[in-house]
Amino acid sequence: MAVTVIEPGLGATGTRRPRPPGHWQAARRALLREPRRVVGAAIVVIFVVLAVVGPFLYPRHLAANANSIYAPPSLVHPLGTDFEGTDVLSLMVTGARYVLVSGAVAGAIAVVLGALVGLLAGYLAGAVDWSLSRITDFALTIPQYPLLVVLAAVVRFTSPVLIGVLLGVTSWPGLARAVRSQAFSLRERPYIEASRSLGLSTRHVIVREMLPNIAPYVAMNLLVSMIGAIYAETGLFFLGILPTSNVNNWGAMLNQAVFSAGAIGSPQAISYLLSPLVAILLLTLGIVFVLDAVDEFFNPRLRG
């Protein structure tokens, strides 16, 4: 006897056919849910635009003007000038690319390596896990800053990509460990067990079944490690650990403002000192504001 009970999609209000929104729509919705997310996204977008088009707006070598050193903000120099009389705004705009590129490269490398190693170790377990975990442990013991100090003596860090790569390859192990433990718990979930027993490939299980489940976490980590890389990079330049000559970025500006020219003691130069600081803070703030929108975007349950 066949007893088939069709469960209709009938709510009280009649036929409801809920459709999950597409990716663009979901992203838009996640962003628009709260005003601060919009503010954060706007900040991030402005900085990205600056980084992309900024260097094209100004000549390759910014003009120095010995007659207007430490000029206060004016119509000609909205953010004043630096110790050489170069316009601070132009320095800010052209320096954005270095900061953003190094941050993005570092974040991307750390997240891709960390998630990949963590997922493989956690899902495959056994010998693979053992070897990957030992590699992770080894990578964890590499001291990031001393390594960069030593390298700075040999390598010239004029390329933001290079420093991004270095920051990235030294900062993935933390994420790898976290992802590994998540993958460990995921592989015991009934739906992962079901995928395995249906004969779906390891690649499918890792990429299609497990990755989306840790995607919110990975995406958050991408943004957080970008912030970390930006702080690390500007910090290294600020402290003078990386040579500030021939590079133009916010960290180098801070270094020169504080150490080279003693701007910290001259009140006219306040805008010169504050500009890179405020830019870094704004960028961080923007990324932090966007964080929970990213979480919502990757989590179908929050998407509703």
Binding site: I192, E193, A194, A215
Partner: peptide
């Protein structure tokens, strides 16, 4: 062993929250 399939106790944890019904069926 693929010829033996499990129906789990908890239908909430037996389905991947990030996969749609279509994907759940069409993958296998």
């Amino acid at each position: 062993l693929r010829r033996v399939q499990m129906v789990h106790q908890d239908p909430y944890s037996a389905l991947n929250p990030t996969r749609t019904v279509r994907q759940v069926l069409e993958d296998p």
